[in-house]
């Protein structure tokens, strides 16, 4: 090979790796930039009052406590709906199902459910829970909508965790004359549980950050009082951000409040995600089988 050909090859290699690295660093930069920007602008709005007081003076002053509480209820409700459904679905798919057309249809269904746009989930929640089942715009309707939204995430995470349980554990238990159901309950699920939970925490983060599904099913523009039943409407952090940023009485004047609320939401959601990522890393390192 001639020297020029080698040099040409070398240049192409350098350019290619340059582009590859550039892409990755653009992403890191975007994430870092967004986070830094929000933190720098939002940190001054954060205070004890901000997270413990309701909004005042047509939401131009005061805090965001009702929105934090509302998001908490909606998220807990979503997990309460999504987690049991998701784990049991995943157990069926990994432990019981045999290959065949029925399983194929269920899998396609789960994939398609994962792809349903969040605003369509909102419409579904409105049409089904709010209107047809007459729940009204409420924590109940919002939690169910969000729970169904995160169901595919939880199924996926649980399936992965269940599949990572070594087959030898199942064999060992069955060979001792333990029934399949007891084997799942006593060996498979406990072994898979940390993995199931980390995956589900990611679902939790998603539920906390979603806006469109709760716009028509649960979220109130403003309510100073805290909910007393699952049929009450609540404020929620993501919707509150949207309202302040686009429909507030004075968008420019409430900017600090907006940055503060965005920062709280980010801390909440990414905090949840980060915890999940760290737990998962620890499990992977500690795993002995």
């Amino acid at each position: 090979m001639t020297t020029t050909a080698i040099r040409y090859r070398y240049i192409k290699q350098t350019v290619f790796f340059g582009l590859v690295r550039l892409s990755a660093f653009i992403l890191a930069l975007a994430l870092g930039g967004i986070l830094a920007y929000i933190i720098v602008h939002g940190i001054s709005a954060l205070s004890w009052e901000f997270v413990t007081q309701p909004p005042r003076e047509a939401m131009t002053k005061g805090g965001i406590m009702p929105a934090i509480v509302g998001t908490f209820y909606l998220t807990v409700g979503a997990i309460a709906v999504g987690l049991p459904l998701g784990i049991v679905s995943a157990v069926y798919l990994t432990e019981y199902a045999r290959q065949g057309p029925v399983i194929r249809v269920i899998r396609i269904g789960i994939n398609c459910l994962a792809g349903v746009p969040s605003v369509v989930f909102g419409l579904f929640g409105l049409g089904f829970f709010v209107v047809m089942l007459k729940f009204g715009s409420s924590i109940l309707a919002g939690s169910l909508t969000l729970g169904f939204l995160i169901l595919p995430t939880i199924i996926g995470a649980s399936e992965e965790a269940l599949k990572s349980v070594p087959q030898t554990f199942r064999e060992a238990s069955l060979a001792l004359g333990v029934s399949k159901w007891q084997t799942i309950l006593r060996i498979v699920l406990p072994t898979a549980l940390p993995g199931i939970l980390t995956g589900s925490i990611l679902g939790l983060g998603r539920a906390a950050g979603e806006t469109a599904p709760i716009m028509f099913t649960a979220a109130a523009f403003f309510t100073a009082k805290l909910p007393t039943s699952v049929f009450d409407e609540v404020m929620a952090l993501p919707y509150h951000i949207y309202v302040l940023a686009t429909a507030g009485t004075n968008i420019e004047e409430t900017r600090p409040l907006q940055y503060g609320t965005v920062l709280v939401l980010i801390l909440l959601v990414l905090g949840i995600d980060l915890v999940a990522i760290l737990i998962r890393a620890t499990i992977r390192r500690r795993k002995k089988w």
Binding site: L27, A28, I34, I38, G209, I241, Y242, A245, Q258, V269
Partner: peptide, 19 residues
């Protein structure tokens, strides 16, 4: 990074786009 980026709530990204 990718996981956190995927985890950013869309309303936050929308907000960033606006401001």
């Amino acid at each position: 990074v990718i996981e956190l980026l995927a985890g950013l709530p869309s309303v936050v990204l929308g907000f960033f786009g606006m401001v």
